[in-house]
Amino acid sequence: MLSYLCKRIGAGLVLLGLVSLVTFMMVFRSPEAIAFNIIGSTATADQITRKITELGLDRPVLIQYLDWLSRAVQGDFGVSWFKAEPVSTLINRHLPVSLSMVGVAVVVMGLAAALLGVIAAVRGGWVDRAIQILSVVGFSVPSFWLGLLLVIFFAVRLNWLPATGYVSFTRSPLDWATSLVLPVTALVLAGIASASQQVRGAVIDALDQDYIRTLKARGVTQRSILFRHALRNAVPPALTVLSLQFIALVGGAAIIEQVFAIPGLGSLTVTASLNGDVPVLMGVVVTLIILVIAVNFVIDLLNALANPKVRMP
């Protein structure tokens, strides 16, 4: 087990290093464009040259990367070129907002997908077909379009929920929950549609195994077969799908945060991209990669605990 965990950690570190290197090479490959974007359209050649020298962009890119990496491993991602704040401070301010939204979305999506998937697999017939049709419809609806519809109906017309904004949990748990209802709903619909079908398939495959038929022949109740045997074997593929959906939610959160004016990491990324704030972009990319690696590691650990075959060499 320890060897398996070490391999997964090592693979994650290698992935983090490669992604950070490739991203750094891409965003820092044109120092003239960076300096021009910072100064503005009225920039002269002398101003661009001075700005490149000021930012240290005239050095070899590999040297710049090693210098950035030596500071990044200590949690120092530099200072924002436009906000004059440490990048780590900006990330620490915006990341909890995104994590709270995505965390609630994952829980809601996991519970809803598991419930719908199990019902579709066990009941079959028209119930299964109806859930599949709803899943196709849910997967086809764009999250930003659904978000706008939710705002118009529940916030503008009915005035039940706030249209935009975010309230921290420490400030008011109730206001925090109400501020997340609409964005989480818009964010999870497509994920529920996709994950429920994966859960359905995993449960059907588990129920079709020979040992399940043996249990039925011995008179074991359907409830016991489903909850003690079939679902246990359907957990690994369901967890894998959930981890992939988590990554998709992190990416989709940027759009939803723009629709609902939520000051999360997605909004920070969009602003930094429009401004060409490279230090912020690098900090966000590394933070997201670490987050994805951590989630995948936890999922791999749960899969290894649930199924010993996963950790076999």
Score class of each variant (00 low, 15 high):
S140V: 11
S194C: 00
A130K: 13
V167I: 11
G165I: 01
P236H: 09
A163D: 04
F139A: 01
I192L: 09
W145R: 08
Q222W: 04
P142N: 15
N233D: 04
G117E: 03
G117S: 10
L226D: 01
D128L: 05
N233F: 03
R157V: 14
Q245R: 12
I204G: 04
R213M: 14
R157H: 14
F260Q: 01
L207W: 14
F260S: 02
I119Y: 11
A253H: 00
V151W: 08
T164I: 04
G138F: 00
L174A: 08
T221S: 13
G147R: 08
A234S: 02
R228H: 04
P183R: 03
A238L: 03
T170N: 12
P142G: 15
F154E: 01
P173D: 02
D128Q: 15
P263V: 08
G125A: 13
R228Q: 07
V188K: 14
A230P: 02
L180A: 09
Y166K: 11
H229A: 03
T221P: 01
L215W: 06
D175G: 10
F169C: 07
D205Y: 02
T170C: 00
I133R: 04
A193L: 01
T214M: 12
I255V: 15
V241M: 09
R200D: 01
I131M: 10
S196C: 10
F246N: 01
V122N: 02
S140F: 07
Y211N: 05
V127G: 04
T240N: 10
G125S: 14
I131N: 05
R223L: 06
N233M: 02
L158W: 15
D175W: 02
L158D: 03
A193D: 03
A163K: 04
R223I: 07
R228S: 10
L226K: 01
G252A: 09
V241A: 15
S196P: 03
P162H: 02
N233I: 03
A254F: 09
V137Y: 03
T221C: 00
A177F: 14
V122D: 00
G251E: 02
K216T: 12
P162R: 09
R200K: 12
